[in-house]
Design a protein around this nucleic acid. Structure first.
Length: 190
DNA sequence: CTCCAGGGGGCCA
DNA sequence: TGGCCCCATGGA
């Protein structure tokens, strides 16, 4: 199995996916797009992206797409704004922690040390907000590996799979960005 | 009606 | 480490 060939196959079938950071309309005027990406990465946990968009629109309408605003906003107001994204009690807590953390140059370790950020969310932040060549693994990635006959890898630990992709692909942020998004597109189409 | 979406934490053996 | 449960909304 050649991963680059798999990528090209998916790209031919589904085309560019326009995920972060170049999603049209993603970066709101006057707000740091990196913070918006971090917020989105938390809000999308086990949640359809369409619901996340509603929550982010609420935050934007209330001028709450920056760390200081989220850190100071009333907790119940924050919950109301992010309600469409589900899990609002947990996610409000996570956003409060993120907003208080003063994330400037995060490392994987520093992100993982924060309550509410696991490996997939940490890697999504590093890749899509800070343009680091980290391959994001999710349940769809495992499905793809299984379909490719790599059942061993499909059931392996998260970081084993991540290392497999990073060791068998060029170290290219844009490639990782697009590949992960294409895997999601493939899974949704299937 | 059921199922699940761009997961993570807590608990327990 | 691995299995299980909880969290919550909205679209299919």
């Amino acid at each position: 199995m050649e991963l680059m060939a798999v990528y090209e196959n998916l790209y031919d079938r589904f085309g560019p996916q326009h995920w972060w950071p170049k999603h049209e309309g993603s970066a709101r005027p006057g707000f740091d797009p990196r913070f918006e990406v971090m917020v989105g990465a938390i809000l999308t946990q086990n949640t359809a992206w369409t619901n996340v968009e509603k929550a982010i629109a609420n935050l934007y309408a209330a001028d709450c797409l920056d760390a200081k605003a989220i850190a100071s906003v009333d907790g119940s107001r924050l919950k109301d704004m992010i309600r469409p994204a589900g899990y609002f009690n947990q996610k409000a807590k996570k956003l409060k922690i993120l907003a208080s953390a003063d994330v400037v140059e995060p490392t994987r370790r520093s992100l993982l040390s924060m309550w509410g950020i696991g490996r997939e969310t940490a890697d999504s932040i590093l890749l899509y907000a800070f343009n680091e060549p980290i391959f994001v693994v999710d349940a769809y990635t495992r499905r793809l590996l299984a379909l490719l006959g790599r059942h061993d890898l499909a059931e392996a630990d998260y970081d084993v799979i991540r290392n497999f992709f990073e060791l068998n692909l060029p170290r290219d942020t844009n490639l990782y960005n697009e590949f992960h998004a294409l895997i999601v597109a493939w899974a949704k189409a299937a």
